[in-house]
Design a protein around this nucleic acid. Structure first.
Lengths: 332, 332
DNA sequence: TAATCGGCTGTAAGCACTTCCACATCAAAG
DNA sequence: CTTTGATGTGGAAGTGCTTACAGCCGATTA
């Protein structure tokens, strides 16, 4: 079942069938004959051959680490929506190991399996970036930054500052920070920015920056638990904790519950991301428009072919819920 | 940059290059020359041309409704793991509307873009099934059943029975059921099975089956809230509620909290699925091996080409947590 | 020395499309 | 009645790969 069968059925040439399919001069009567034949034979063009002739595939790749984490799911949701709307399919490249990451960065761009590649939370090094650019594949980064590519990031520094300012405004002065870590060679670079925001807010609030109040862990609930635990065991545990992601914040909450510390009475907690669970558990957090970032990413991928790369910064917003409150001063 | 360039660089024919890539008789010295050329030119075969010549694509399709829901994410995780292990890519076909569903069922199988298609929680009607089978594309169903295809399902009836038996064993006799509904024309058929399990358990426990204790809603938290609310407003609200999915159970929990009913003291709640959130919120539930179902699905897709379709039933397990307890008999 | 054989390689024919080019058709214009 | 131009159409080349087939070479065998 191929284009020749259709051509024979409709008594036209394959060129005409192709023109009906792709748009081009075809007389109305002929077009209808061809369409009838297509319908009758239940013909659907072979997409491999199509992309070979066309030079494009109609497929967008999305490369993402640990795609089951809520943040990535939300981005993915945006990507899927935008891609579907534009008539593109998406293939998922999940990255869980350094090897996978390197492998994808090395081969993916030149295989021409996808028309464009969206890279989430992963940063190519300069050599990889150069090769990708030379391969000519459109690439957009989401939640990551590289000067060679259009990048979509939330205001990480500003968001973190906002979180800590919020805590300071509530009277807290000993503020712990559970930051995210570089997992393998994935080159997350959000952690640095959020650390800067944390520091800036402290300094602006006239509070000494104390590195021992910082715990660096995986971007996961388990990671958050480690951080919460470490901070809790101090002689002078912080009265408030800022976690670099909601998932980590949930881990901190969990630890507080285990140790029977009341949140927010004994300790205030604020996260970052505003995943669905945050709402469910009433977690105060800094929201970033995750889904929208995916949408913007796809739009950039599709509609800004030859424009120079630019960085699009999206806004972070404080979402106040029940896990932060004014510091209770039993004794000054 | 194509296979001819490599052939020229290595002073061999394209046939030899192809043989190096795909395995075949090539003298060691020649092979090395070719590999050097490939490396030097940074050559990666064009996958469109490859699949055209090869007749297969190395891609698996996964068709799934509302993929962001936790259940589907878990299945997807299994699918991704198994596909990656087998060296296949996956393309995601998300279904949110009847139109998308029909469209995919109509065209997907004959486009040959994928080597196999995994359909999750969606049931083709007989006509669609016939066309798919005739197209010759391997198809496996997960969490859905059709006699034409290998299907992987949890023991829905048994699981539901287990849930209700658990409640009965705790002394409950007025047991509400928030079941899932058919959303659009998606033909979920789990709801019927779970209803049967509910009924069976009641009858076995000598309890009258009361249809007014059943509320049918979307498979979502919002749906669960509606159900919980409806059951709560009765003159004789149930002392225990079984929800057909954890997401719905969470909605019920939410409503109970809003109305200041203590769970499990005032009312016991049990869900179905055992999503990650269930553990987080201490929800008693019936676990189904979601991730594993995805893995099995892919394995079946890849390794059981010409075997007759069969139904693989996986086990459901009761996971007791904190949302169910023995009925407190203030007054008999 | 000639026949045979296995390892290795080049050639060319697919695979199923798209698209360029040339040519045909037909109406309006000259 | 011829020219022009727009509209339609068929044929063929091109897309980048796989693989069947035939042929070559050197070593083994008769």
């Amino acid at each position: 079942m191929n284009i020749y069968d259709v051509a024979r059925e409709a008594t036209v040439s394959i060129g005409t069938v192709s023109r009906v399919l792709n748009g081009g001069y075809v007389k109305q009567a002929t077009r209808e004959r061809v369409l009838t034949a297509i319908h009758k034979l239940d013909y659907v063009p072979n997409s491999g051959a199509r992309s070979l002739g066309l030079g494009r595939t109609g497929v967008l790749g999305i490369m993402v680490p640990f795609f089951t984490r809520p943040f990535f799911i939300e981005v993915l949701r945006g990507v899927e929506m935008a891609a579907a709307k534009a008539g593109h399919e998406i293939v998922l490249y999940n990255v869980e190991t350094d090897q996978q990451r390197d492998n994808y960065f090395k081969r993916l761009p030149m295989r021409k399996r996808v028309d464009g590649l969206l890279i989430v939370s992963l940063r190519p090094d300069d050599q990889e970036a150069t090769r990708i650019r030379e391969a000519g594949l459109p690439v957009v980064l989401v939640d990551a930054y590289h000067p060679y590519f259009t990048s979509i990031v939330v205001e990480n520094t500003g968001g973190a500052r906002m979180a800590v300012e919020h805590l300071i405004s509530l009277g807290h002065r000993r503020i712990g920070f559970v930051n995210g870590m570089v997992e393998g060679a994935f080159h997350f670079n959000q952690a640095d920015d959020r650390l800067n925001g944390y520091r800036e807010a402290l300094i602006a609030g006239g509070i000494d920056f104390d590195p021992t109040l910082i715990y660096v862990s995986e971007w996961s609930r388990a990671g958050g638990m480690k951080g919460g635990d470490a901070l809790l065991r101090r002689d002078d545990p912080p009265t408030a904790i800022f976690a670099a992601s909601d998932l980590q914040a949930l881990g901190v909450l969990e630890v507080m519950r285990q140790h029977e510390r009341n949140v927010p009475h004994d300790v205030s907690i604020i996260g970052f991301d505003n995943i669905e669970l945050a709402e469910l558990l009433n977690l105060t957090t800094i929201a970033q428009p995750m889904c929208e970032m995916g949408v913007i990413g796809v739009e950039q991928l599709l509609h800004s072919k030859d424009e120079p790369p630019r960085t699009i910064q999206v806004e972070a917003k404080l979402v106040q819920r029940q896990t932060t409150q004014r510091l209770f001063m039993g004794v000054t």
